[in-house]
Design a protein around this nucleic acid. Structure first.
Lengths: 338, 338
DNA sequence: ACTTGCTGTCGAAGCGCTTCGACAACCTAT
DNA sequence: ATAGGTTGTCGAAGCGCTTCGACAGCAAGT
């Protein structure tokens, strides 16, 4: 293992000079710098992470806490995680992967031990038990998702209220009057996950303004669950012509069931999904959808965080504006329904 | 920030004693231990990770290198990652998330800096450029997936050869003679990803033994790609009655297309999928499938790794035996085809 | 009583780096 | 020519922990 001291000796300078070459915190003459860089290359030197962390009280690690639930749509989590990791690297940080399993203890452990300089939390609940800890520490953090009370916190999220509203507006414009919302699994609502409730709020209030009727049903994914849910919806509101789906694993089952019942999409019923673009494009009917900007969320989160770590930037809530892409699953409401 | 020294003072012992209480590397009297533990609790002490790493040359971190490709089935990667993270925690390790982006440089960086004590590599290619580096270092590592040459390496993987064979056997037993294999995206084969080729090998050689005909077609996921692929297959081999699918995002499209063409599953054609159980269960037809044991793979990998870190265990290849679960998508070949 | 062997504790050295203050050496303005 | 300011480099302290050797105290065997 090559050390700073060896590099220094090899280059004929002192250890501190090498350190300053590496960090750029003091000016170094061009010739010295070159000599040092040469030695570093020749010896294959890599600074020791532990020593660095100890001396500078900076680990250059960002902790990312991901949920380990299975009722969330996993690819989105993964995409965020990957965006976080790659963006972090461009800022010189590595990413430590924490699963939600440990809960608040993980926050204590990481902040207490100086393992990470900052953290990003995913799957934030409206009243999340980790929040008091975050507020009580001076370690920077960013939430992906919005809790009920955001004072003293930095959050990044899709504007779910606006997303819900946007879906309704689109259907309203097309003349649909009776809207059914296929939601996430019941458990998601029970634990008061912000995005699900906000979507619903935005959707309902806009629907009210526009004079539409909305029926919301949570739904586990898969065919069987979707079949039951759809039957109930059509039983209760036979005139339903617009669907908003916020559960990736219910999308395909819904399309199949509608097809099976002889309801054509988009001629008889329109479907708007809230899902990653890839899902929308790969579905059996190319779906009109509001994209979930996973990458953007991950990137934003890291950028807010590094800003804080550099002393720039303050607490703030970043809401990403939703974008609806019209594809083949939505069209004018059939005559006589509006 | 509370330090070891403060705990020692509070408990009225020396710093080294506290350290030994923490590590258990020397015997400590019960009374002293209790006093120290009490102080630790009262002061809310957390050992500093950097200092620990520096002094012990152990970071207690395992690096996990995940691919950032989008043509692999993401939930499986995620499940493995989560299994790795949770299993690692039970052994006292944290997990550093590396994306494949950096490639071999990441391996150099991590081993060189002592950031991690060991690494787990996913998405291993038959002739992976990271392998020479791994062989050249004394840092323990485990691959999830099999390269062409496994000498000096520890690998964990599903036995893909056996998986392919198992699928064929099942179909053969049911009387199917003409088998089509819907594979991963062409890119997966082009970059010589081990599992895809091995599955095919196992499948073909068993088919040969059993006298079955096999037609293999790579396939991007989604409806459009699947439609083209299926048309070609049925054109070339109209008598095909058995399908093996090794591409999660082709499963549902295939089922839909078959249905659409009036081919009943499992009466007219049988489908065997190689996919996580969740996918098999949630599909529109409950699929006969060989499960991808993501959790098990993650767990095994960590356990092999910690064994190595503790000086136990040696290089070895762990192949997990595939298990086929019969569900509703496979049945006897229609009369007159065998 | 005296060595021998534990057991439990301590002090001190050092892990490899960052960072602060010091200070030559030089350059510019008086 | 001299005071004042830069610029580039160095030495030393210290980050918080682990670990090694030393050793006091005590039990057991001679």
């Amino acid at each position: 293992m090559v050390t700073l001291a060896e590099v220094a000796q090899h280059a004929g300078v002192s250890a501190s000079t090498v350190s300053y070459v590496l960090s750029g915190k003091r000016s170094i003459s061009a010739t010295t710098r070159q000599r040092v860089e040469q030695s570093i290359r020749e010896l294959g030197y890599h600074p020791n992470a532990g020593a660095r962390a100890l001396a500078s009280s900076r680990s250059n690690i960002i902790a990312l806490m991901i949920p380990l639930r299975t009722d969330m749509y996993v690819p989105v989590m993964m995409e965020i995680a990957i965006a976080v990791a790659t963006t972090a690297r461009t800022h010189g940080y590595d990413v430590l992967l924490l699963t939600g399993e440990e809960g608040p203890d993980a926050v204590r452990r990481v902040t207490g031990s100086g393992l990470a300089d900052a953290m990003i939390l995913m799957d934030v609940q409206l009243d999340d038990e980790r929040l008091p800890l975050l507020r009580g520490t001076d370690q920077p953090s960013v939430l992906i998702g919005l809790p009920a009370d955001t004072t003293g916190l930095t959050c990044v999220d899709l504007d779910w209220n606006a997303t819900g509203a946007l879906c309704v507006e689109h259907l309203a414009t097309l003349g649909h009057r009776d809207i059914a919302v296929i939601g996430e699994a019941p458990a998601v609502y029970e634990r008061h996950t912000g995005f699900a409730e906000r979507t619903l709020d935005g959707l309902r209030s806009r629907a009210k303004e526009l004079g539409l009727r909305v029926l919301h049903r949570p739904c586990e994914g898969g065919y069987d669950a979707m079949a039951v849910t759809l039957a109930r919806i059509l039983d209760e509101r036979p005139g339903t012509t617009g669907f908003v789906v916020q559960n990736e694993s219910a999308v395909e089952p819904l399309l199949a069931l509608l097809r099976q019942q002889g309801r054509a999409v988009p001629e008889d019923v329109s479907v708007v999904a809230i899902c990653p673009d890839q899902v929308a494009v790969q579905a059996s009917v190319r779906l009109t959808s509001v994209a979930i900007p996973a990458q953007e969320m991950g990137r934003h989160a890291v950028e807010r965080l590094t800003a804080k770590l550099d002393g720039r930037g303050s607490d703030e809530v970043v809401l990403i504006a939703p974008e609806l892409t019209v594809r083949a699953s939505s069209g004018p409401a059939p005559a006589g329904t509006s």
